[in-house]
Design a protein around this nucleic acid. Structure first.
Lengths: 176, 176
DNA sequence: GCCGAATTGGCAGTATACAGACAATCAGGC
DNA sequence: GCCTGATTGTCTGTATACTGCCAATTCGGC
């Protein structure tokens, strides 16, 4: 659509990838929050809960790099989780700069319930697309993301989880 | 990455469309702001400047629906543009609830310069994708967006510009 | 042991982005 | 004219999300 060559018009904006990404992200967040209303969980909080569950004792910087978030943002989200008794922040055993994060029992319960809701929200989000289109979209977004590995203060560095991010006694520096 | 079928791990998150959209949007904003550093323009400010230029005298609610923004967000962005003398807010001729927005000369100049920068930023964003992939991605995002027409307080309602939403306007397709 | 660099977490400031509530205003029905 | 409902803009509060800056701490080189 909007494949015209007209010099002006809002279609100039509507066809910009940045606009489309903003709008689709906006829709995605909106659907997630609506679906998760009973749990009062945001997408970011869900992501942090998940990352901490998969990597108990992880530090904030680890969560940040796993999710591609800034340290400040991560600290904010963690603060909110702690104030709601969903997570815990404890001093690290050997490095007093760090804090080890773990889920509380309540946090684990909320996360478990959130998974089903997240799956439903995902289905609602992708509902306008045929199965083949969905795969295609995810593949393209993946490709775009992978093509921009770095650039921010906390560059995104995917982890396969369960391996913690090194340091802590193992002597492994992880995929640095 | 993460093409496995393992039951757990961060790949669960990395393959979620919501996560991918967030990350790609984050990259898009980051690239735009970096490119636009000299003008100190954000993507939202660029969008509002553009919408006002295309629809001189438009009200805030019109800008909001054209860009799919909340009224509060729009007011914030407009405030910043006004404080930098890029836009003007004037009382509406016949409806005292409304404010007519127009660009200042400086605002028009900044927008003109921003267009070239935005084009460059867009090229950088899409650089990891082949031309065919780019078209495909835009088409899929468009489709996804179109499939979720409503739902928010200020539902997104695309305009082809120059049509304003009623009153006080003729079909003037100006400038450039 | 000491010093400088790097790391981690925190804080302030700024910018989207939304929901909820509110006042002013306008439009339609009577 | 008057009342009701809708519209517009604003304000408050909350939640991402980032940049800069800072203190505490750790680590490497000497």
């Amino acid at each position: 659509m909007a494949g015209d060559g007209q010099p002006v018009g809002m279609s100039y904006i509507y066809d910009r990838p940045g606009f489309l990404l903003r709008r689709c992200h906006q829709i995605s967040v909106s659907i997630f929050r609506e679906s998760c209303e009973e749990l009062d969980l945001t997408p970011a909080q869900f992501g942090v809960l998940y990352a901490v569950e998969q990597n108990p004792g992880v530090e904030q910087i680890g969560v940040a790099t796993m999710l591609g978030l800034d340290r400040s943002t991560t600290a904010d989200v963690v603060d909110r989780l702690i104030s709601r008794d969903l997570a815990r922040r404890e001093g690290h055993a050997t490095d007093r700069r760090r804090c080890s994060l773990t889920l509380t029992t309540k946090g684990g319960d909320v996360l478990a319930r959130a998974r089903a809701i997240a799956a439903e929200a995902q289905e609602r989000l992708l509902e306008p697309l045929a199965p083949a289109d969905r795969d295609q979209l995810l593949a393209l977004l993946h490709k775009l993301m992978a093509g921009h590995g770095d650039g921010s203060r906390v560059p995104f560095r995917p982890r396969v989880a369960a391996t913690q991010q090194g340091r802590t006694r193992t002597g492994k520096t992880d995929e640095r």
